[in-house]
Structure formats: C-alpha cells, structure tokens
Design a protein around this nucleic acid. Sequence first.
DNA 1: CATAGGATCGCCT
DNA 2: GGCGATCCTATGT
Length: 199
Amino acid sequence: MSLIPREFYLRDDVVGISRDLLGKFLISRIDGNITSGIICETEAYAGVADKASHAYGGRRTARTEVMYAQGGTAYIYLCYGIHSLFNIVTHQKDFPHAVLIRSIKPVEGFEIMLRRVGKTRINQNFGIGPGNVSKIMGIHYHYTGHDLTKKPERSDRFGIWLEDRGVMADPKKIITGPRIGVIYAGQDALLPYRFQIAF
DNA sequence: CATAGGATCGCCT
DNA sequence: GGCGATCCTATGT
C-alpha cells in the first residue's frame, strides 16, 4: 500500500517500466469519487527514436510538450475525437518517453465506473482498451500534465496517482508482443513493446 | 485559414 | 468484420 515514488518513473528504461507497471494500481479521485484498478496491459513509447511515438524526431508541439516533462507526469490526449488516452511519462525531463495504459482490472468504485459509461451491467470490454480505461476512471484529456507522484490530501476532491499494493506480476505469465494500431511506424511497429497479464 | 487524419470503440450486419 | 462517430492536432498554403 504505497505511493509509487518519482524515482520509479525516472529510469531510462521505458520498456522495463512498462513491464513493471503490470500489477500496479491506478487510482483516481474525481469530484471526490474514488475509482481504481490493477494495470493489466501497457505499451512503451520510446522517445525521439521511436517512429510510433508522438515525440518521434524530437517533435515538440502544444500537445506533446508534456512528454518532455520529468517522469511521473500524465500525458493524456484526445484520440479519434472521442477517446482520452492515458499515458505515464517516464525518464528525465527533456526525454519524451511514455507508457500507454491499455487495460485495467477494476477494483474499487464499480458503481461510479458504470455510471461513467452509462451502463448498469459490467460487459466484456469493461476496463479493456485505452479509451475504456480513461472512461471508467474518469480521466479526461484536460488533465494532461498532472503530477502522478502526488497523492491528494484527504480534503482534495481531485487526484490521479499510482500505488504498489503488493500485487506481483509473475514474469512467466507476462505476454509480450507488438503494439496495437501503429502500422504507420514501419519497422518500429514490430517492436515487442506491449505487455499484458491477467489478474 | 483549410484540411486530412488519428496510440479507438461500439454497434450493425 | 465493417463502418461511422467526432474534434483536436499537425501541417500546409
């Protein structure tokens, strides 16, 4: 039951961090409502050399600027005009590495999550897919730039952070493969930067 | 200023 | 498995 510290995100190893994030808890408090889930699937985006990354070639734009912040910062952007995709920036300031959270296993706040998706029953896609993760967690792209290493005070009504609650990901059960939806990245689309595990 | 396209999803067939 | 939704972002003139 401990907040994941800044140092976890500062390593120059976005692929390793992606793997290590499996089993960690993603927690949000939005308007005072707590929801959380265990991270089950991630993808690494390895900075300026990675053709699949928004920061490929050192591109700096209003949207991608937060990717250049220090590790432990949230990079959240709007995809296809509809979906907020949640990423965790890693490495030191000015090194735009990030990890996309692709799925979680919901743990706390089922009622609130269901309300957010306008459903009354949990379906097969619940928590599966980066757009769905943000939707049920109440994470909006306007929250990009948020410091994920800061757990909110009891009185705060907003916060997004990660905790290690002792759930271990068995290395032998981790499935590794190429990233989804990045065919435009040529050879880089084949890199084994996607990690998933069932909890 | 105009325009094409996207690290997706859910519904329809 | 095919497609429309939906709007911000990046890029070009």
